[in-house]
Design a protein around this nucleic acid. Sequence first.
DNA 1: CTTCTTGCAAATAGTTTGCATATAG
DNA 2: CTATATGCAAACTATTTGCAAGAAG
Lengths: 145, 145
Amino acid sequence: MSNMKYSRQRKAIIDFLATRTDHPTADIVYINMRKEFPKISLGTVYRNLSLLVEIGEAIKVPCNDEAEHFDGCTLKHYHFQCNRCGAVLDLHISDMDSLQDLNKIANADFDGNIEGNSIFFYGKCRNCVKELEKKSKVKNEDQKI
Amino acid sequence: MSNMKYSRQRKAIIDFLATRTDHPTADIVYINMRKEFPKISLGTVYRNLSLLVEIGEAIKVPCNDEAEHFDGCTLKHYHFQCNRCGAVLDLHISDMDSLQDLNKIANADFDGNIEGNSIFFYGKCRNCVKELEKKSKVKNEDQKI
DNA sequence: CTTCTTGCAAATAGTTTGCATATAG
DNA sequence: CTATATGCAAACTATTTGCAAGAAG
């Protein structure tokens, strides 16, 4: 990994991920890169994203979507996906203590070695909660996302 | 969903899922169905699997694999994936109390509505732990999975 | 110069779908 | 009979890869 050369495309992808909190898919990254590099290819985007994951500058967010989501923030945190609009959001839990022993608890009944876990929350995001409130008040209005 | 007709293929898929604890992918189901129905198509397998998921007779196991894994056991339990051999196993946690308040804890700092979570554990399964022990004793032996 | 990176296009893996035929009710 | 299910093949989506040309060190 030390044999990595600088590339403007990679730099742009890193910068882009840093500005986003919504964990874009490779395709979203691609679309945005094309503004600056009209001829960039999806292959380049994928190659760089997995390279960044390999060297720890990004993580793949495990969520139950068809497509992989990428996160430029590698600090430990949890993720949430809205099952109405599909947005993937960060979740910062202040009371982490409750989660500390999760692996230990799970290992108690498991014949093997548990090394980690990934927790994924789902529900309705703030916007969708609002939308739904509106809809229940004005029932004859069409659904707008 | 009440307009569902009986089919021998669907029955066989349900029975097959019930006998397996390792959460097969659609492809594995397909391969096994071909023993009884040599001309069954992957399309039929996929159609039935998603139908079963819809009516709650099976669940999609959320794991970070390329392919979807299906589980015939719809009772609440957790999953584990071995990051050496890729096996997906069930995890039965007896001390569930610790997990009860997870949504509540997460919701405390979240602007929206958390409805559920999925926890996925990873590490080394029993077999791989054994294999690795063997390897560290007999270092000149090749890796056998 | 040598190695890494890119753009392009073709390949791949998993899954879905249109359609004519077969089967259940 | 009528509606649902099947087999088959083609379509589709996300991702990966081979290769010749371009940029970095």
